[in-house]
Nucleic acid binder design. Structure first.
Lengths: 181, 181
DNA sequence: TGGTCTGCCGAATTTAGTTCGGCCAGCGGG
DNA sequence: CCCGCTGGCCGAACTAAATTCGGCAGACCA
């Protein structure tokens, strides 16, 4: 039973293109791409070092970097913190299905979960389930509380299914540039 | 059918504690925590600005930051790139089950998928399925190729199930500190 | 009390960030 | 063909940040 579920995307889902159409493709030269790749790898590299790596003067590199930030090609910078050393936490995945599929039902649900701190990620899916949530809490009890809060919040959840993460085999921050360019 | 699946973690799974025990908890004072939170939010803030925010002199802040990096509490820094503007891509989630659950089977599978560039994330799960993969490719065809490569690679996959992401409702980089401290 | 240790401050120095003027190549119009 | 415009680059000059260093103050212990 290999259910490659590409087809049955509920038509009432906010289409993916809505999110995407707001961002028309931009053409960059190879130096800009190199800058982006370097900053994705090392977000705190100095501008002068970066200039060396892409074979540019510091000032030229400075201008390009500022342009990339202004054009919102670089959205933000983040430190990757070793949280495991600081605190106990558990990662859960919850698959959810809604009772009905009007655009209002999706919006209500999405606005609700987006506000929840422990909900680290939320994806609308095609193929049998409506949403996948990644929830991070200190322990199972806190997770259960969040689920119960969701169920009593009257945001149209029909059913859910939880998987607990027992090992993070691979994690990368964001989209691997080399895989999509 | 609300299947909160906490219990049946296969005993042959690498126990989560194995990954965690190598990282004994470290106690930090409130200033260190403030530094970490600020750097998680803005990974490229200048050390002098950071010093202001946490009410420290630049040199004291400098020493703390260097210590946090040396202690591997700060693992890395990354720029968040607006990839949607650069390239077309699709996000897929694949749930996989292995044919048999010896430690060797898990290791072989994990080593294989960890090497694949389009596999952005991989989690071992408890509760009916063995692994959840997040795969990012340019289109459905590329995804299908990756799946087929996995199936012919003879790494013990019994079955899989794909969900395509139609909307990224919420994404955060990493673990939300305020949710687990 | 005296010694040691830790973490902080602030001055001094080194390095990086930023601005600016000028150069050069490419382009389009007279 | 020549002219002027433009965009992007370089490098010098300046400003700001990073880093080093000496010394001070409080905590701790003998």
């Amino acid at each position: 039973m290999n259910c490659l579920s590409v087809a049955p995307i509920q038509s009432s889902h906010p289409p993916a293109s809505r999110t995407r159409s707001s961002a028309p493709r931009i053409a960059l030269d190879s130096i800009d791409l190199e800058i982006l790749k370097n900053l994705q790898q090392d977000g705190r590299i100095s501008k002068s070092q970066l200039a060396e790596r892409v074979n540019l003067s510091a000032s030229a590199c400075f201008e390009r970097m500022r342009r990339l930030e202004q054009q919102k090609l670089i959205l933000s910078y983040h430190a990757n913190i070793n949280v495991r050393v600081l605190a106990q936490y558990e990662v859960f995945f919850a698959e959810l299905t809604l009772k009905s599929h009007r655009i209002y039902d999706f919006d209500r649900f999405e606005r609700h979960v987006a506000k929840l701190g422990p909900v680290a990620e939320c994806y609308a899916l095609g193929g049998g389930i409506d949403y996948l949530l990644k929830v991070i809490t200190t322990d199972i009890e806190s997770y259960q509380e969040i689920i119960e809060d969701l169920l009593v919040a009257d945001i149209g959840i029909e059913r859910y299914c939880t998987y607990i993460c027992t090992k993070m085999v691979k994690t990368t921050g964001g989209i691997p540039l080399q895989a999509v360019l």
